[in-house]
Amino acid sequence: MVDNINNGILRCLQENARQSNTAIGKIVGISSPAVAERIRKMEDVGIIKSYRAVIAPELIGYQLKAIITIRAFMGKLKPFLENVKKWNEVVNCYRITGNENIVMEVVLRDQKHLEEFIDVIITYGESKTQIVLSQVVAHQPTVKSINYIK
């Protein structure tokens, strides 16, 4: 399903999902209708999951970013996993191996908001919070980098 042309289309979409099928077609060497058909097929099988706007949280009032790990209390992991999807502060949440069960990336308005958020999550387990000072790398894995993962 993912040949060199589809890889090229995926790279184009990752760089700018708003570019036209004509522009993508010029890059990968096929017609605009052929690009549209390939994109539709990749959407249908789930290779392309969604299109979205990536926003700058700090410009809409979320000045604080934190990484929070949780070591869930006995019987609290499943309720946590059900509720975490409802919390707007959570940008990413992963279930992980090791001493902690969960790692989350959260955005918050300020320290008071962080304190209120921690008050909610500590009912599920022991938490550790690290405040993010700056972002060093910010990108999704690209098709090119995925090809190197064995």
Score class of each variant (00 low, 15 high):
residue 9 I to D: 00
residue 23 A to G: 06
residue 105 E to W: 03
residue 106 V to H: 01
residue 73 F to A: 07
residue 24 I to G: 11
residue 134 S to A: 05
residue 119 D to F: 01
residue 136 V to G: 10
residue 49 K to W: 02
residue 114 L to S: 04
residue 134 S to P: 00
residue 29 G to C: 06
residue 60 I to D: 07
residue 136 V to W: 12
residue 97 T to L: 14
residue 29 G to T: 09
residue 70 I to W: 04
residue 12 C to V: 03
residue 101 N to Q: 05
residue 33 P to A: 10
residue 31 S to N: 09
residue 128 K to G: 08
residue 103 V to D: 00
residue 28 V to C: 06
residue 75 G to R: 15
residue 111 Q to L: 04
residue 139 H to F: 07
residue 115 E to C: 02
residue 24 I to S: 06
residue 21 N to L: 05
residue 56 A to K: 13
residue 61 G to K: 01
residue 40 R to S: 10
residue 112 K to H: 03
residue 45 V to K: 15
residue 10 L to G: 03
residue 111 Q to S: 02
residue 44 D to H: 02
residue 77 L to V: 11
residue 17 A to L: 02
residue 65 K to V: 05
residue 17 A to S: 15
residue 139 H to P: 00
residue 75 G to H: 13
residue 121 I to K: 08
residue 104 M to V: 02
residue 114 L to M: 12
residue 29 G to Q: 06
residue 46 G to N: 12
residue 116 E to Y: 00
residue 49 K to T: 09
residue 64 L to G: 08
residue 75 G to V: 11
residue 111 Q to P: 00
residue 32 S to G: 10
residue 129 T to P: 02
residue 72 A to D: 12
residue 137 V to W: 08
residue 40 R to T: 07
residue 57 P to W: 14
residue 45 V to M: 14
residue 121 I to Y: 03
residue 81 L to H: 03
residue 31 S to W: 02
residue 82 E to Y: 12
residue 59 L to S: 12
residue 69 T to H: 10
residue 127 S to V: 09
residue 15 E to D: 08
residue 24 I to V: 13
residue 108 L to I: 04
residue 115 E to Y: 09
residue 63 Q to V: 07
residue 32 S to C: 06
residue 131 I to N: 08
residue 6 N to R: 12
residue 33 P to V: 13
residue 10 L to H: 04
residue 62 Y to I: 05
residue 5 I to P: 01
residue 50 S to N: 14
residue 11 R to D: 15
residue 78 K to M: 04
residue 29 G to P: 01
residue 33 P to F: 15
residue 73 F to T: 05
residue 71 R to V: 01
residue 31 S to T: 13
residue 140 Q to M: 06
residue 61 G to I: 06
residue 127 S to H: 00
residue 9 I to H: 11
residue 128 K to S: 11
residue 45 V to D: 13
residue 75 G to I: 14
residue 68 I to C: 12
residue 17 A to T: 10
